[in-house]
Design a protein around this nucleic acid. Structure first.
Lengths: 107, 107
DNA sequence: GCAACGTCTTACCGTACGGTAATGCATTAC
DNA sequence: GTAATGCATTACCGTACGGTAAGACGTTGC
């Protein structure tokens, strides 16, 4: 469940998967067919494949409910994976801003 | 220079490109050959290709100095692209935590 | 029981992408 | 001038990946 940076960015690389995560973030929990309804250009099995990938990467969790499979974002795992990366670059950004100001261009 | 979310995540998808960005974040400015030295398993032209990709995506800037090409992170463009995405999911994470604390099932 | 449904799985196909090798093009060194 | 350096570009190759189609599997409903 480590959800390495590698897995995170590989999972986020595809626009369909990002859209799925957005939908899950918005609705909290959705079944495969509900998600599928938001992708008219794609077949259900394709969505299922993406979900399996997200699940393998550890970004989402799945709970069976009858014949439906309910997916939701694993918020904890995701934030754990994102946080260090954001922190690393935030440090750089502020540093870069300082350097810019020092360099003579103040805004 | 918009650096869409799509371009951002496509650029971040490759581990070599992420490593390049890390190195640039750490050293501020590096030439192609200096960067290349950090990738013993790769040929220089490969690094150059990755740099061109990062440049096309708008994550780095390049300035020629003699026969060296100096690359640096375009911190402003990068933070502009990352910020909305981080904000969107940060909102979700805190929301998810609240929902967890409530532990209520009405929704 | 059986049929419909929801999802997963397994081929399979096309394409996009990371990698190398070779060449070209400036710029610096001699 | 010529040679060497640093980088970009092009062509090419292998593979990984997103997509579909078809079938398997469990579940619900009759």
């Amino acid at each position: 469940m480590a959800l390495s940076e590698e897995e995170l960015f590989r999972a986020m690389a595809d626009p369909t998967r990002r859209r799925i995560l957005d939908l899950l973030a918005e609705h909290g929990t959705l079944s495969v067919s509900e998600l599928s309804a938001h992708f008219p250009g794609l077949v259900t099995s394709g969505i299922s494949k993406h979900l399996m990938a997200l699940r393998a990467a550890g970004l989402v969790t799945a709970t069976r409910q009858g014949r439906h499979q309910l997916y939701a974002i694993d918020a904890e795992a995701m934030s754990r994976a994102v946080a260090p990366w954001v922190a690393r670059y935030e440090a750089y950004w502020t540093g870069a801003l300082d350097r810019l100001k020092k360099a003579g261009q103040e805004e």
